[in-house]
Design a protein around this nucleic acid. Sequence first.
DNA 1: ACCGCGGGCTAATACGTATTAGCGATAGGA
DNA 2: TCCTATCGCTAATACGTATTAGCCCGCGGT
Lengths: 355, 355
Amino acid sequence: MADKRPAKVRRGRPRQAEVARLAGVSQTTVSLVLGGNKQGIVLHPDTRARVLEAARELGYVPDPAARRLAAARNNLLGVFSFTATFPTAVEHSYYPFLVGVEQEAAVRGYDLVLFTGSSSGGAQAGAPGALERVRLADGCLFLGRHIPADELRRLVGHGYPAVHIGRRDELEGLAWVGADYVDASAEVVRHLAGLGHRRIVLVREDDDAPASTDRERGFREALRRGGLAGADPVVRAADPASEITPAWLRERHAEGVTAFVAEETDTGAAWRALLAAVEGAGLDVPADVSLALLGSPPADLAGRPRPTGFDIPRAELGAAAVRALTALLTEGEAESPLVACAFRPGSTTGPAPAR
Amino acid sequence: MADKRPAKVRRGRPRQAEVARLAGVSQTTVSLVLGGNKQGIVLHPDTRARVLEAARELGYVPDPAARRLAAARNNLLGVFSFTATFPTAVEHSYYPFLVGVEQEAAVRGYDLVLFTGSSSGGAQAGAPGALERVRLADGCLFLGRHIPADELRRLVGHGYPAVHIGRRDELEGLAWVGADYVDASAEVVRHLAGLGHRRIVLVREDDDAPASTDRERGFREALRRGGLAGADPVVRAADPASEITPAWLRERHAEGVTAFVAEETDTGAAWRALLAAVEGAGLDVPADVSLALLGSPPADLAGRPRPTGFDIPRAELGAAAVRALTALLTEGEAESPLVACAFRPGSTTGPAPAR
DNA sequence: ACCGCGGGCTAATACGTATTAGCGATAGGA
DNA sequence: TCCTATCGCTAATACGTATTAGCCCGCGGT
């Protein structure tokens, strides 16, 4: 037979068109049978059966790319991190978010795009338009400290659905989910007050991140409500290691301060300084003084006794971010919820010593 | 002139057509400028510049689905896991792979799509065509124990570029990268031999995973080459905890066995049993007996002394997988390399005691 | 005989990008 | 002067599926 065409070896997968040919119907019908048929178009049961049989026989599987193209959405959620995306060093702070994000995305039928953002050595790292790449996804989650505010503003200004993990009030129009540091910090203070502590000091770093401000606010409010307001109970230390000394601590202790609270930061400097100072002063924890940490201890201190304080529910935060983002996608708007932190009893607090 | 109308406030991402309108050229030209222009069609530099400027201004990003459909490239690599993707329990075994994958992908200019595979509760978990979703990406990495072999065979049979992390010989045509357990295990034996141990026993679980078989092979070969072959040096224990007892251990020790080696498995059962037995027998490590572990210790034993043995270079394995996959994409074929494990001196081995 | 109606199906088109074929204009050679 | 050969660009189409608009047919009502 003169080749009117090499019979088109149909290498590759069968299309709806082939199924249609085999079943003796149109491609549209195949789409209706195999796709959802959300239009409620009526088809004869026999036709349905024939199509299903033909599809089974050919082993038809829909092409995801075509499907997504036709649906005008990708079912992809982006994850963009401003810090190095997967550095071993922050393993413990980034990964838990991802756990929650992944699980919630799976439940809702989305896949995830990890933008190899500003991660070390990334090909497009730091390029001026690097952020624009996220438009590939239907919407995107952002996390990290150092946001390129202008670029992000542009994106949300264009109506791109974006959710930031962590409070971000200053960026008008950007949705976010955050941890309720105010309430969690207050709870730690209430716990100390319940143990009889009347004078409590907060050691924080000299930095005005929202996370720090919120903790201080919760701390102060709880003091006030507990009737514990006194001389200024907050110490700002630019370099905790050199300012929070054994001498300083002994002095506070002599004044009647029986509990010290440190805020958590990436370095954990305030907490480390506090631990060192207490040890240097020869005081016993929790017999002489109680210590609390407004957050989780740094990974390298995992072996030490568990500090009293709270844990940031990172996985839950990730899940909440996905919920907010999908709400943006389907309803067009999302609220910015605060997720409660979990109180951690720990073993660094005890009853206030009798005077 | 009529077509110079101001771009209407489009919801959603800009298309090539909009870029074209803004730059005053055709969609084709935009595609030529922004796509690779592999046809070598000549364009005036000024035109090129106008298009680039317009694209930048609108924040244009190509639609991955459309790209894919038009039989081109995405610059997206998929990652599909058969185990629950991010279960907290395997945190330490899955995440390190991702670190390597992400970094290598970033270097090569690919972004990552995390398919929310068979992860617990996933919407499309277990659906017959769930695997086909990966076709959205140019190629895909697979990892996990329980592979749906039929579906995967189908994918690679149709020429889809796939690389498995972990040796996978039985699936014809599937590329993989794996750790060289044979050589790493042999090195541990050589280390022991160098310390003067003449009789060494391997405790393994009763399971025929490739990872176990490879370790045993390396172990036996090293014994043979070291002239240490003797009575059968390998113990298979279906339930190590009840079979590796202090009595058993004492008996072996009396026979002249001075070093015990355990294989690593997910549970670490063999290693745990060995530790318990040695302690129960009242023997000192490493003065009386030396112990080694063919892998990394379970996370919960991190506090204990570091076992002599080797570490599986998970990040490096992830990076190697990406290299193999990109080779598949660009050259059409890739070898399946073995990555060397890193010897870990540890502190559980010492010179063989004088008899 | 005409209309209306609903059941059962399909032709046409949209989705966004890549590729192919080809068009108009200018320049150089005979 | 005519013929070719670039150069610089565009119209048309393919990719596979989902959706929209509608076609044809038989039937009951007037």
